[in-house]
Design a protein around this nucleic acid. Sequence first.
DNA 1: TGTCCACAGGAAATACGGGGGT
DNA 2: ACCCCCGTATTTCCTGTGGACA
Length: 409
Amino acid sequence: METQTVRERMLKQIEHMARHSVIRDRRYLDDEQLVRSEQLAVLEEIFNTKVREAEVSELSSHFAGMLRGDHPCHLAIWGKTGTGKTMTLCFFLNLIADMAKGRGVELRHEHLDISTPRPCFRALNDLACLLGAAKRYKHGISLEELMVRIETHLADFKGYLVLFVDEVDNVRDREPFLTFLVRRLPQRLQAKLVLIFVSNRLDWCDQLNPRIRSFLKMNELVFEPYDAADLQHILRIRIGKALRPGMVGDGVVGKIAALASRDHGDARQAVALLARSAYVAEKAGSMITLNLVDEAARQIEQNRYVALMRSAPRQLQAAMAAVIDGARGGRLLSTAQAYEAYQRLCAQVRLNVLTYRAFSDLLAELDLYSLIDSRIMSRGRYGRCRQIRLSLPQNLVDQIARAIRMSFT
DNA sequence: TGTCCACAGGAAATACGGGGGT
DNA sequence: ACCCCCGTATTTCCTGTGGACA
């Protein structure tokens, strides 16, 4: 009896969802889930709408010489996250490699992605792996040895070698790394080496040896953030691929584009907001409306806080938990009171207790992220003290508390 | 007007840990 | 396997401060 009704309800639910579903292919809302060729297809469609036209034509004129046998110089590219640097370059290099093949020009291109900070040794080792010149080492091999292996591995190659170093600014101690690539490697190869450095910081080469810097400064290309119109194009293409037709209300695309271009013009953010909106709409069983976009934006915002705390250092988590515990019911808390709560908590979860001074810095950090709201009040004769309260909505505070508890167990 | 509370927050010293070199 | 170095976290020490109170 019981199972029957459950079964029925589920069937009804599925039927309802099928009739009202918003999403046709959710993979197109998240690049990670697309295979390479699909990504490139999306990009091609985007570039066909004149988005990034200036940059692509700049790249074309810079590299077109390769098809005629010239040796183009290196290129330094700047742009904030989500401005499509990596995507544009990948697309472009694929395109030019294709054309080169058609004309019998030997061209090899590699993408060295330094997505997380790593020392020179790691970066070189990664490069060697990428080229197939060496295996992955933890240690036990000198920098020199790595360099020689890369050189000997490439010794016989005579065509163009385009090396696309993504997020170079993540290489700590990048001087030797860059010196190797810029000054030493070209001299020891028969191949025509073309380096492309991408960074999201304008100042990444400021502290470098002037000789290398001047070398890099020769050719720069800046990726401006997308404007709202670009973002609209990008969103429309995604919508066409990912959603069923007619599921997007009036003004929704404009709104998402406006929100995303207002902070940083990050395309990834815009697509993420679209994805979340679609998800929320699907759950609500309606098309995407302006209100649902607001709801989605709120959820993304809240998730950021939760994710931030989940991945925060334990001490910071403990400080947050202490404040949540102490400031129940909108109570105002002084640093000293918060510190007491923190000490109790540390005892419970066997965390070593930091000094008052260090704890005070933790609170300042929480305040910086606006996880708490703290201001300094003078009580005259009775001294000055910080008044701490939770400023986030209660349900979010509960989520954060839960996330912290999870990572403590 | 000066005092003094109760803390904030800067500076320097020190501890710690992880990665690279040998 | 071991040591050293360096960047970061933490501690220690200290000076600064707004305003109620006498």
